[in-house]
Design a protein around this nucleic acid. Structure first.
Lengths: 205, 205
DNA sequence: CTTGACAGCTAATCGCAATTAGCTTATAAT
DNA sequence: ATTATAAGCTAATTGCGATTAGCTGTCAAG
């Protein structure tokens, strides 16, 4: 019934593991449980399937981003919420972000696919940079800027604080994407990272 | 004359831009300046070319790593050299590492190729993790451990210090790999990162 | 009932890309 | 000089993989 949607799902799974060029339409069809020619009742070409995935991604990002408070749009007003943030809050926030990125099926596959295809298409490169670099950094920079102003954290360059906070998260994410068995170890290191971050930038001494 | 070598170079260039599956042997041949069938005088298949590249990479890494002091092998003895390290030294070290990774032709292509192929072959995944995560972290952890012991830096978990130092370098590297025009901006942010790192972990204050 | 559109199938088609065959030339060793 | 080998070329060959043609069954609308 919702074959059309299932094709996208299975195709995304395969693209994220092998890359567009190494996936055969017959594989997609098999994963869906139909024969290759039947795909063409739903999409007019392999490229068309890819484009549909991309469209869906772009649509879903805005919701997901605002849900996670990553997009940086309204960071300042949201930061009010965090004015009483403590070390444990920060740990929760960071591991939450990390584990969401890592485990959410859609987010993970999307990220892997973009990672594989990034050098072949500058649109994909920009998308990856936006979603995994610029948006998180700008959101967090605004948040830290607010926290510094409020006197919760020491006054340092908030862009660099955001980098110190986020780059390790991103780094560990790339490790776990290729070595899933290292998730536990990485989560531990992540927590140590946040605790130390908090001690360093926190007002307590 | 050294056609055999040139084939590897051109193939690496193409693989690092498009990925193995999207490169045709005819393209490699053209880049070298010969016809596709002539490639088979030097390598018995496309896969064989890929394997040869990989072998060369594995061989060259050890030299390059020890040259750059990344490998972590003899970090402790080397760390003696850094016992008088200052903020400027650290900035020089970090930007040097960053710009080397970013500009060295071989390193850049190798990294991009591994990035593209990482999810298709766990050997490649491990290689990428080793060279861009484990080795740099373990080297730097040993270095910071030494610097803390010497009293040059405040006493913090050296693994986390290494993560704080290195993850932003890696992060900015991935950004510049896909958006080369952001190199200047990224280098600036990198320097701010190191200065702040140095102020935070340094003894002065 | 019956018709049309939907979604599936099998069996072509079509093109491309890897590889092989077999010829040619140059050069280096005997 | 002769010959063997290396390294190139053009012209097949081969196989695979995307796509198209055309048939079938189902099922909702009239």
């Amino acid at each position: 019934m919702n074959t059309k949607k299932r094709i996208l799902d299975e195709a995304l799974t395969l693209f994220s593991e092998k890359g567009y060029g190494n996936v055969y339409v017959a594989q997609i069809a098999e994963a869906v449980g139909i024969k290759a020619p039947s795909l063409y009742k739903h999409y007019k070409s392999k490229q068309d399937i890819f484009n549909a995935i991309l469209d869906e991604m772009k649509k879903s990002y805005d919701k997901q981003a605002s849900m996670l408070n990553i997009s940086g749009e309204d960071a300042v007003s949201d930061a009010e919420v965090y004015s009483d943030i403590g070390e444990d809050e920060l740990v929760r926030m960071a591991t939450g972000l990390f584990l969401y990125f890592l485990h959410d099926d859609y987010a993970q596959k999307f990220r892997k696919m973009l990672t594989i295809e990034q050098f072949r298409d500058s649109e994909l490169a920009h998308l990856l940079t936006k979603e995994y670099a610029d948006d998180p950094l700008s959101y967090q920079s605004a948040m830290f800027s607010m926290l510094c102003k409020k006197g919760v954290l020491r006054k340092y360059d908030p862009d660099v604080m955001a980098l110190h906070f986020y780059a390790p998260i991103y780094f560990l994410l790339t490790v776990c994407d290729r070595e899933p068995q290292r998730e536990t170890e990485s989560t531990e290191l992540l927590k140590r990272h946040i605790r130390q971050f908090s001690r360093i930038y926190g007002k307590g001494e």
